[in-house]
Computed example of a mutant assay.
Amino acid sequence: MTPRENLLHLLRREGYETVPVEFMLCPSLEKSFQEEIGGPGADYMEYFGMPWRRVGELIPEDTDITRFYPYYDEIKDNMEIDEWGVGHESSPTSMHMTKMHHPLEDAEEVEEIESYPIPVYTEEKNVWVKDRVKELHEKGLASVGNMQCTIWETAWYIRGMENLMMDMLSDEELAEAVFDMVEKMSTDRALIYAKAGVDILYLGDDIGMQHSIMMSEEMYSQWLYPRLKRLISKVKEVRPDIIVIYHSCGYIEPFINYLIDAGIDVLNPIQAECMEFKEIYEKYGDRISFHGTIGTQTVMPFGTPEEVKENVWGNLDIAGEKGGLMVAPTHLLEPEVPWANILAYAEACREYKKK
């Protein structure tokens, strides 16, 4: 099988030939990869033979971010405005992390929400996506439409988390206006990817914390679950065979049945420090597949190479011969992760022998 075919079979729990290697590097690790391993300009995804590629970010109709300037008292020199109008302020020590500024944090009326110049995405502006998908498939690679900030995160990035939480509890009209605006934009984006023929649509919103869910099940089922379900339903009307992966860090076990009912096919990352993969697999592994499970707070930065391999092999044994686990680090690999452990992870995938 090609890498694409092998991956799709694995995620559909139809068996697999080889264990795919997949991880993401922070900028400093990517630089060290080029300096120490791959050479100048080398692509680590190609070097390690990763089976998928993101097709690229969609282009909004209006790319002029100055339309968001009125939402800020000051645009600092160390601040960038993204295509949604969210401000990101960096500092000399922030590396790839930034302080976020929320353009609608002071909004008090529904009209202010409804007049917000949120980006519009159209197929006409993004005809290039089909060519990119075709190019990846011709190389034997799976294509991914990446929009891991889907509804909840996109909404609170724009409104501010505390404000949006308060809206959900005490000003439902404002909350409805924000979520409706974001749901439409996210659905438009998802449908562009689906119609272009991507194999995988990667959705996500962090709805868990280290040891608890971020909101009550009642709040989740009222505000987020129906919107995610509508979005996925529309996508699968267009592409019934598309694989929907959903990302949320943290402890989210109480939400998993909602996510399955909403239509997700694969859950990421089953954060090792927050949930036990064996327990989650035994409860849900007959209905969904998984991506992740190797801790980036623990074993990847602080374990030995042997411990990394044992984690990889142990989790693959849990999933068994039919697959259902794309084993990988649970998040972006940060500077404290040693290359010995990254290489051990890749070796463990390649050396694994199915029981």
Rank of each mutant, 00 (worst) to 15 (best):
G39R: 01
G87N: 01
E35V: 01
P119I: 09
N6A: 09
I37A: 00
K130Q: 12
V299L: 11
F33K: 02
G303E: 15
T150S: 01
D167Q: 11
K99W: 08
S143F: 00
L231A: 09
F302Y: 09
D77C: 02
T93D: 14
W313R: 08
Y220V: 04
P240S: 14
E46A: 07
G285C: 10
Y225D: 07
L11G: 03
Y16D: 05
K99G: 14
E105D: 13
D106M: 01
L136Y: 00
S28F: 00
V312T: 07
V198Y: 07
Y251A: 05
D106G: 04
A348S: 02
L104Q: 05
D188S: 03
G15W: 06
P70M: 04
K76M: 13
L169Y: 01
I242P: 12
W84Q: 04
P27H: 08
E306M: 02
K229C: 12
L325W: 15
T296Q: 15
M168N: 06
P92N: 07
T293M: 02
E17L: 00
L343S: 15
E111N: 09
K278C: 01
E74Y: 07
R54H: 01
H9K: 14
D131Y: 06
E307W: 09
A262T: 04
E80L: 13
L224G: 05
R13N: 14
N311T: 02
K229L: 13
H331F: 06
G204I: 14
S289I: 11
L25P: 00
W84R: 13
S170D: 12
I75C: 03
M79W: 14
M95N: 14
S248G: 12
S212G: 03
V144D: 08
H9C: 14
I232E: 09
T154F: 09
W152N: 15
M168E: 11
Y345M: 09
I245S: 14
A190K: 13
V86H: 07
I151Q: 10
A42I: 05
R239N: 15
D131P: 03
F33T: 03
L141S: 11
K309R: 02
M209A: 08
P51I: 05
K139P: 04
A344H: 00
E22I: 01
G295K: 13
L25M: 08
N268C: 04
A348D: 10
S94D: 08
G145Q: 00
G292T: 05
I342D: 06
P103C: 14
A194F: 01
K354P: 13
C149R: 05
R227G: 06
Y251Q: 09
E83M: 15
L11V: 08
V129T: 08
T330K: 04
I264L: 09
A262W: 10
I342E: 01
K76S: 02
E176D: 10
G49Y: 08
S143A: 08
Y121N: 15
K134H: 03
M79N: 09
W156P: 06
M100D: 11
E307S: 07
Y246A: 05
E61L: 10
M24Q: 05
K355H: 10
D261W: 11
M214Y: 06
K139Y: 04
I200Q: 00
N163F: 15
E351P: 13
I75K: 12
Y220S: 03
